[in-house]
Design a protein around this nucleic acid. Structure first.
Lengths: 295, 295
DNA sequence: TTGGAAAAATAACTAATGTTTTTCTAAATG
DNA sequence: CATTTAGAAAAACATTAGTTATTTTTCCAA
């Protein structure tokens, strides 16, 4: 099979986009934006994902000169297997891999971490990030909740974030549940929930509760689809795939740091002076080793 | 779906290989060696490729605790989509940068994060990592201390790490100082301290105290040279350079996850079964939303 | 407004895929 | 040596997938 066929098809789709009928245009855009999923999914699933009938996909194939849907999808399939072998491993990772058994484990983990960070960052559209930051800055209170392993990154997010955004609150604060602390929350507030498969019961329940109250809901998680019982206003999808037995949280960490960078930028001078006062207080209270008080 | 399932399955296949029946062993080897093809191919094709009947593949799935072949293959399918994310779309950072002002900030932050993660991982020599893991596994107690922003990643490290290494303890536990809890510590113990410029006074003091007691000292920090007053046994140097006002902790997070991967690997079967019991307990106590108890 | 053509959805159909049942084989056991 | 049992293959079965035929919708021009 022609190994460049996938690239050719994508290029054709892009150039032909304006000439296509409405539905076919939707399909073409979907294929270009989700080449990997398109290669993997069966026809009905792809149809569902772009809100189109199965036959529309068949027509898409015929318009492009393929005999049928299968023939259109095949190059995308091939590319899947190929890319997984071809995953770009820089030299230093290869060197690591060749240095004994534990070096191999280290190499796999390192390669995976970089991949996870990259793909997590790649997925965040600037529009959505801007919306999320806007929601945070506009809210009366921004609640932040997570448990278990995710609590670590929530703690970090809060520790840094509250300097730029004083309304940021990490819940539950004490030995209570997040729901207790959402008791006063309403439509002016935002809840950010961080959880990954398998989802923590407490966190999901806090989400459901919050949404019932009209609180705006932002989730940092690993899937577009969590539940039919509630619909987050924004979902920041990150990758937590790992080589060992636990999820790899470097992906979400990267996305959260991205969010922090934006918060500081959009927060403007006000945020920056506030951060400065935090720094000053720490200096005055000898929080840092070796640093002198300024006077 | 559990994003670590593929890694778990491959690891199980490797360890169970000797206990399997002849045909299943062939299948297991095939899956480990051709994970990508296995994810893509239909059952008959995989059966043909490893010269067994389709039902042998179904049995393989059942032996591993899956309901059927489909369920076994699913994580491998997911991995395919993920790895293709990696190769696709070169220049995405450029596209980001050209999409408005906040896109530019986002692009800078993303590029910075990737660079920081890369260089942090690159710096860790396999020898040193092996020494560190060896020290951790050999210690009576492994104390872990950090404050402020670093506390988030220490919390994460501890939450995950203690499943593989029960002697791992996050200090201070309560409203006390780390030094209080190091009172009983001695030469059989290890202290891991996480702090970055400007160094937290409490953490550095804990390091000095510990070393005076003969406790072995491992530091995760951003420089080879901290102080002349004490000399850590091992220093894991990570990069925390950032585009905004705060350090970028994705680097240290990446290194710590690398360490976790090694801990699990070197911990061997014992660690894996311990991790399993944690999982079981969580399932039984309804910690996860939507998950059923196994019986 | 109303034919008519293009676009799209629906539903029926055939081929393939995963699963299950049945049958066969060979090694282990008494 | 007969019997049992686990492992594996073969074949039958049910489901799902891609395709094709038919109907419905949309939109434009007469």
């Amino acid at each position: 099979m022609d190994p460049t066929l996938k690239a050719k098809t994508i290029s054709t789709l892009k150039t032909e986009l304006p000439n296509l009928s409405p539905r076919l245009r939707v399909v073409a855009k979907y294929i270009v934006d989700h080449a990997a999923d398109f290669g993997l999914d069966p026809i009905r699933q792809t149809a569902k994902k772009c809100g189109v009938s199965t036959y529309t996909l068949v027509r898409m194939a015929k318009v492009l000169g393929f005999a049928g849907f299968d023939e259109l999808r095949e190059p995308f399939r091939h590319a899947l297997v190929f890319s997984s072998d071809m995953v770009d491993r820089p030299g230093w990772i290869e060197d690591l891999r060749n240095s004994g058994e534990s070096g191999q484990v280290q190499a796999e983990a390192a390669a995976n971490t970089i991949a996870v960070v990259r793909s997590s960052l790649l997925r965040q559209s600037p529009d959505q990030m801007a919306r999320v930051v806007g929601m945070m800055l506009g809210a009366r209170n921004v609640y932040l909740t997570a448990v278990r392993a995710s609590y670590g990154i929530a703690y970090y997010f809060h520790y840094v974030g509250r300097m730029a955004l004083p309304s940021l609150q990490l819940i539950p604060r004490h030995m209570s549940s997040a729901i207790d602390e959402l008791n006063q929350a309403g439509p002016d507030d935002v809840l950010i929930a961080i959880t990954f498969t398998p989802y923590s019961r407490e966190t999901i329940e806090a989400c459901k509760f919050a949404q019932k109250r009209g609180v705006k809901l932002i989730m940092v998680t690993d899937s577009d689809v969590i539940s039919t019982e509630f619909q987050p206003d924004e979902i920041l999808v990150t990758s937590v795939v790992s080589t060992h037995h636990f999820g790899c949280y470097a992906g979400p960490t990267a996305v959260i740091e991205n969010l922090l960078a934006l918060l500081v930028q959009v927060g403007g001078q006000e945020a920056k002076t506030r951060i400065k006062t935090y720094e000053d207080i720490r200096l005055e209270n000898n929080a840092y080793w070796g640093a002198r008080k300024k006077h």
